[in-house]
């Protein structure tokens, strides 16, 4: 018998065993889990502090679906290696991520949870960028609508975007219950990031085929059109002939039916 086994029936023995087990497992995990070359990536995308904060936030809020190192969990969340800071900024700043427990066919834009502040997004983005690179976030200059040419942007928008998002970005249907959302609440940065990262079902429009200047033109068009007045009255959602037909029948025929009832109504005689 040695000193450890002699104390095996000590009241605190079980806690000592648990502590030992935790240290063993934790130490093994720390030794064996991949860490990657974080130092260089951290320099490229942010300070080491940002990345560390981001990692903490990631583990708390994202890892249950995306894995502790962003490698993805089949059936829950895709791998985030290589998606880049732009993806994170887009998904988190629009509230799409963290997704609710049952997302349905797609993760929609929703209200931001309390912990999502601009700093939190920066940190998260820095961390994910450090995992494997990917598209970076555009600068303010790159998405400034005032610097874009809306006419040129409109031509590109009509060629590549409206088939899903509709002429003015009012949104459109996709298969299996998915839909392309409307663009009314998207910031210029989010629009740029969506194009470059291709979130969910949206295709990818990288910078080598649609250049950053062209993207800025498209942003200028989208912003200009959604802010401009509807000179013909109420835009009726800018959806098109479906709402126009509905209004024509309900308002037009409805009002005229009421008018015809009034014109031909006979007055009640006074009763005795």
């Amino acid at each position: 018998m040695n000193s450890i086994t002699a104390r095996r029936r000590h009241p605190l023995a079980r806690y000592a065993v648990i502590l030992l087990a935790l240290c063993l497992v934790g130490g093994a995990y720390a030794l064996l889990s991949p860490t990657g070359d974080r130092a260089d990536a951290a320099i490229a995308s942010g300070t080491n502090d940002d990345v560390a904060n981001g990692k903490a936030l990631f583990e708390a809020n994202c890892s249950s679906c995306h894995g502790l190192n962003g490698q993805g969990v089949p059936g829950n969340g895709p791998s985030l290696i290589g998606v880049g800071a732009a993806s994170v900024d887009f998904q988190v700043s629009s509230g799409r991520m963290p997704a609710a427990n049952s997302t349905g066919p797609q993760a929609p834009r929703k209200a931001l949870p309390e912990w999502v502040t601009p700093k939190a997004i920066d940190d998260l983005a820095a961390y994910v960028q450090s995992l494997g690179g990917g598209p970076t976030r555009p600068t303010a200059d790159m998405v400034d609508p005032a610097k874009g040419d809306p006419a040129k942007g409109g031509e590109l928008f009509r060629a590549n975007c409206i088939q899903c998002h509709n002429w003015v970005g009012a949104g459109g249907a996709l298969t299996e219950g998915k839909h392309a959302p409307n663009l009314n609440k998207s910031t210029p940065t989010q629009i740029y990031e969506a194009m470059i990262t291709g979130p969910q079902a949206m295709p990818v429009f990288n910078d080598t085929t649609i250049t950053p200047e062209q993207k800025r033109d498209m942003i200028a068009y989208i912003v200009k059109v959604r802010e401009q007045v509807d000179p013909g009255g109420s835009g009726l959602g800018r959806i098109g002939p479906v709402t126009e037909g509905l209004v024509g029948w309900v308002v037009g025929i409805g009002l005229l039916s009421l008018a015809s009832i009034w014109i031909t109504a006979k007055r009640r005689a006074k009763t005795k």
Binding site: L156, A159, N160, G198, P203, V204, F205, N206, T209
Partner: peptide, 22 residues
Amino acid sequence: VVEGTGQPIRAADFNSPGGILS
């Protein structure tokens, strides 16, 4: 060429899986 800009497309530039172009 890309519709709207008229630029020819290098295969090496159109390299993001999941990308489309008109």
